[in-house]
């Protein structure tokens, strides 16, 4: 069963089907937040929860025939912006006690590559995460970013090239 047909069932109050969509998208969304959220695992899990909560709450707004991946990605983006706003507020309150979580994460064999991703410029980091971690197609990313597929391919290539450079500089 496709994601779209499952979402139509959820829209028609068959909420059981939301669990199938959750199983299909939980890792993608988790990785999306993990590499956008400075590797904060708990915050990423909270964001994933928020995405599925909103998906169920606003299920009636889903238009049949629309790409479910793009729709859920847009929800994820909104949740991310909300989360970033909240983080900014918290940081302003706890200004003197701020600890950068990137450095609090326990180092492992992949910590260097995670740090390198954080150092990428925003447009490159975004397309890399969408392509690699959200597993969106170039056409879908182009539709979300409102640009051509060629531009997306170029950005992905440059993102991976720059990642290599950042990785080498950190390592």
């Amino acid at each position: 069963m496709t994601d779209e047909s499952l979402m139509v069932l959820v829209k028609n109050d068959d909420l059981e089907k939301a669990s199938i969509l959750y199983q299909r998208y939980k890792k993608k969304l988790y990785h999306f937040y993990l590499f956008r959220n400075c590797n904060d695992q708990e915050a990423s899990e909270d964001c994933v929860q928020q995405v599925f909560y909103r998906m169920i709450k606003y299920r009636k707004s889903y238009i049949e025939g629309n790409n479910f991946g793009i729709w859920i990605y847009k929800i994820a983006q909104n949740v991310l912006y909300q989360d970033l706003k909240n983080q900014a507020k918290m940081n302003s309150i706890q200004n003197g006690f701020r600890i950068n979580e990137m450095y609090t994460a326990e180092p492992d064999e992949y910590s260097t590559i995670r740090q390198a991703i954080q150092l990428l410029p925003e447009p490159y980091r975004e397309v890399l995460i969408m392509s690699k971690f959200m597993e969106l197609k170039y056409e879908e990313i182009a539709q979300i970013s409102n640009c051509s597929v060629g531009v997306i391919k170029t950005r992905v290539f440059r993102a991976i090239s720059q990642l290599k450079e950042k990785y080498n500089s950190i390592a």
């Binding site: 939980k26 988790y30 990785h31 695992q41 492992d108 590559i113 971690f133």
Partner: peptide, 21 residues
């Protein structure tokens, strides 16, 4: 890809989702 497989969400996330559902 290996980074992806090494960083998995915790089972608590599933539990929270099913509670919410």
């Amino acid at each position: 890809d290996e980074v992806k497989t090494k960083s998995e969400p915790s089972p608590a996330m599933d539990a929270d989702f099913y509670d919410m559902l």
